[in-house]
Design a protein around this nucleic acid. Structure first.
Lengths: 191, 191
DNA sequence: GTCCACATGTAACTGGTTACATGATTGG
DNA sequence: CCAATCATGTAACCAGTTACATGTGGAC
């Protein structure tokens, strides 16, 4: 149940139409909670029906017409409630780690190339985050909201750094391994 | 499309019944690809229908009776194909980062407590991983499969270490911030 | 006037979650 | 016998994804 709250946050930062939200999800909040335009429109409808947001009464609400929303007091209250409520972290899911585990059984053929590709992708994302940091958080800017948003961006930067380094480590291990279609020894053990 | 491959990997490591798989997902593969018993039974049915696994023909296949599966050659081939295929990493989703971003708008009240709680949870997970490392990867054990599995466990250890440290950093920032129900200045900016 | 980009939306599907149902085995 | 536990499963639901539909306005 996080998408509605992601949208409420985005709308509080700035009232927007569905497509504007979609674009901001592509390059800001979406870095840690992505969403497609279909999800966003669906959710905007629900939030409006629940009385948490409303369409700005500016212009014609026809199809193909822009329709901007703003957050109502009830929406702000709900977001504050959700933010402070205790929530368990969801277990982390990572297909690449699964593939490495599978490779221990069926062989490492072809995997190294994709490890390298992932490393490049993480490095590119890292560069993008660093640009945002330079642009949005110059040395002077450090009010309470800035500090919190910077903290979040910092998590992104540190995570991408982490994965870049981890993939380097993994690739170094791979260099020592035979590139097999399947290990000769079929040793089996629980973990 | 990762769950079937997680199951294939687990079954190749050791043929098992649905419940045995469920338990192993609770403490091994499940650390980076969790699944409930309902998902597992559903998927076992599909995999059997597709001819990738088969029930070991040991005993009565009645309800309430144990039913173990093993991987067929077609299943192993499919797993090898999937492992070596190029796959894009999924964007990372993290509700806690979302909550911090929301807190920049609606205030930080109550959040610090949950940050501390999460820190404890990550630390506990880290301790569990370290135990597994000591038990399953003593200094001598370093065949190719061991190295790969150790690499995966290492990712878990390093990730939990990362989050523990990041949460410490976040809590240190929080200590400098006023614990508000909403920031006084309603400054708004795109990111 | 036609085409294309913008903007909003519907429908069908897939994967994951929650709640519940049913039978077998074991300990008291 | 009864309760608890083991083991397999069904059903309903919810969130996210993919494919497609429809209308508007501006460029040519």
């Amino acid at each position: 149940m996080s998408l509605p709250h992601a949208i409420l946050t985005a709308l509080l930062e700035k009232p927007s139409s569905g497509l504007e939200l979609t674009r901001r999800f592509d390059r800001s909040i979406g870095y840690f909670w992505s969403a497609t335009h279909q999800q966003i429109y669906r959710e905007l409808g629900k939030l409006e029906a629940e009385g948490l947001i409303r369409a700005l009464p500016s212009e014609q609400p026809a199809r193909g017409q822009k329709k901007a929303y703003e957050v109502l007091p009830a929406g702000r209250a709900e977001l504050a409630r959700w933010t402070s409520a205790s929530q368990d972290p969801k277990p982390h899911r990572d297909a690449m780690l699964l593939r490495l585990r599978a490779a221990a059984v069926v062989g490492t053929a072809g995997l190294a190339a994709d490890l390298r590709r992932h490393r490049e992708l993480h490095e590119r994302q890292l560069a993008e985050y660093r640009e945002i940091e330079q642009r949005d958080f110059p040395p002077g800017k450090d009010g309470p909201e800035d500090r919190l948003r910077h903290l979040v961006l910092r998590a992104g930067i540190d995570l991408e750094t982490f994965w870049t380094q981890w993939l380097d480590h993994a690739l170094a291990e791979f260099a020592l391994l035979p590139d097999t279609g399947g290990p000769e020894s079929q040793g089996v053990r629980e973990a």
